[in-house]
């Protein structure tokens, strides 16, 4: 076997904010943001379900907007504000969506849950009173194979009610 483990990889220094913390890491230029978050920063909340932007399990907020982190090259994150599922609770205080997902049994296996929470948060940040149809279309980029979506949609509706109540 070869003992030569050096390869001519181009690595870029990336400096950005992740869940409110200033972070710096080195990433292969072709590495996805998802792999950088998981492997360099050990933030394994975002998952790879497909690697092609079709399942949404890797969804993170980039400058306030949802992105499939599997489709983003890590160096693109330079200077960006990234929020992952690990960053949506406020300290020990769960985000209302996290709480309604738990109370509403909106997760079974839980592997799609991080992506759903991030997408749903982005939806409610922009549209505090979405219809069921708006919720379903806003979450259409996130696949869930366990729940049939029913309890997810209901939990988002319930969180929206709570958030509107808190805003009043």
């Amino acid at each position: 076997m070869s003992e030569n483990t050096t390869t001519r990889r181009s690595r870029t220094h990336v400096s950005c904010t992740v869940n409110g913390d200033q972070v710096d890491f080195l990433a292969d230029d072709g590495t996805s943001l998802l792999d950088a978050l998981r492997d360099e920063l050990d933030l394994t909340g975002a998952k790879e379900g497909c690697g092609t932007g079709d399942c949404g399990a890797c969804t993170v907020l980039v400058d306030g907007r949802i992105n499939c982190s599997c489709l983003m090259f890590a160096p693109e994150a330079e200077g960006c504000d990234i929020v992952t599922v690990e960053g949506i609770a406020e300290g020990d205080h769960l985000h209302p969506l996290q709480q309604t997902f738990l109370e509403g049994a909106a997760l079974q296996c839980g592997v799609c849950t991080p992506g759903f929470l991030v997408s749903a948060k982005a939806l409610l940040d922009e549209n505090p009173d979405p219809t069921e149809t708006e919720i379903r279309y806003a979450l259409a980029g996130n696949l869930c194979r366990c729940t049939g979506y029913d309890k997810i949609v209901r939990s988002v509706q319930e969180a929206a009610v709570q958030l509107r109540g808190a805003a009043r």
Partner: peptide
Amino acid sequence: IGSDQIQNR
């Protein structure tokens, strides 16, 4: 073109 996630890209 794709999901809301894709729409941002």
